[in-house]
């Protein structure tokens, strides 16, 4: 460890410290927390912060991957590498299992599974009796998320009711719930997409390779570049092309779009998103395009 003689602290230092404060507060107040780990950049940063919050002890709670079954192989490999390196306990809440057991309808081989994540998530929370689930959601991502508390209270059905949120004043995070209820905790609430990338660069947070520019077969659907592979095949005259692309977010492989980009380093990525005209979800998420309040509606049903 090096000792800093320069006590100056910047915006990223304060965001980092505040997030660590929130994580420690939730773990102290709740009985059985869990960290939702998708392998995306936000959950990578969240995990990095959680490890810092309790170092040198091991992370005092497990991580859970809500697995839609439509994964990018690079992301699964990354998840398993992180779990092994950090000595984490991994739980998997599987959408495929929920389909196989008939808990949710099968959307078919080409159907989107983001909607079904909610059920797998709620079943996972119930099975392990988790009373708090950390997520990497940020308020700048979406207009409904912009309204949500850092500690988002969820009733016995797991849904978010935006009309009766708990007041959340100062730095007093109140995590008490009754049996069967739970909390979602969002320590990155005040971070922007650019803050996340700047932090990843500063801290050398490892990421899945698909965040960096690479050439792959893609096809254009609904004005979005989708990766051709196990879950996306050309239909009705769609043309497969090879392009240099990268992913700006990582989600279900059947509805997460790639962006044409040559940014293959963190510096290049930060330069690229500093001047972009399109929001992160607007550029990459097919599931948010169907309705004006897609995110709010999913949260009301119990989504992250």
């Amino acid at each position: 460890m090096t000792t800093s003689t320069h006590p100056q602290i910047d915006h990223l230092d304060l965001l980092e410290s505040h997030a660590i404060f929130i994580i420690r507060e939730v773990v102290a107040e709740c009985e059985r927390p869990v960290l939702l780990f998708s392998g995306g950049k936000d959950s990578a940063v969240l995990l990095h912060l959680a490890v810092k919050a309790f170092a040198p002890q091991k992370l005092p709670f497990p991580v859970m991957h809500v697995d839609t079954g439509h994964n990018f192989p690079e992301v699964l490999a990354y998840r398993d590498e992180r779990v092994a390196t950090l000595g984490l306990r991994l739980e998997v809440a599987s959408v495929q299992e929920a389909i196989d057991q008939g808990r949710v309808p099968d959307p078919g081989p080409l159907g989107m599974r983001n909607q079904l994540q909610t059920r797998a998530l709620l079943d996972g929370i119930e099975k392990h009796k988790f009373d708090a689930a950390f997520g990497g959601a940020r308020r700048d991502e979406d207009k409904a998320r912009a309204k949500e508390r850092v500690l988002s209270f969820r009733g016995v059905f797991g849904g978010w009711d935006p009309k009766i949120q708990r007041p959340e004043l100062w730095q007093l995070y109140q995590g008490k719930v009754n049996a069967g209820e739970n909390l979602r905790a969002f320590p990155l609430s005040d971070w922007t997409e650019l803050d996340v990338w700047n932090y990843i660069r500063r801290e050398n947070v490892p990421l899945p390779s698909i965040y960096f520019a690479h050439e792959r077969p893609v096809l254009k659907r609904d004005n979005m570049w989708l990766a051709v592979g196990e879950f996306i095949h050309p239909q009705h005259g769609e043309v497969v092309e090879r392009h240099l692309v990268r992913f700006r977010t990582v989600g279900d492989a059947s509805c997460t779009g790639a962006v044409r980009s040559g940014a293959d380093t963190l510096d290049a990525i930060i330069a690229e998103i500093s001047v972009t005209n399109v929001s992160e979800r607007g550029a990459t998420r097919a599931d948010d395009r169907f309705s004006e309040t897609a995110m709010e509606d999913r949260k009301r049903e119990g989504y992250f």
Binding site: M1, S4, I9, D13, E16, S17
Partner: peptide, 15 residues
């Protein structure tokens, strides 16, 4: 100990 290692001084807002 700060988030980035040892410190001589801990300022307000730091964990």
């Amino acid at each position: 100990n700060g988030p980035r290692g040892g410190l001589e001084v801990a300022l307000p807002g730091l964990s």
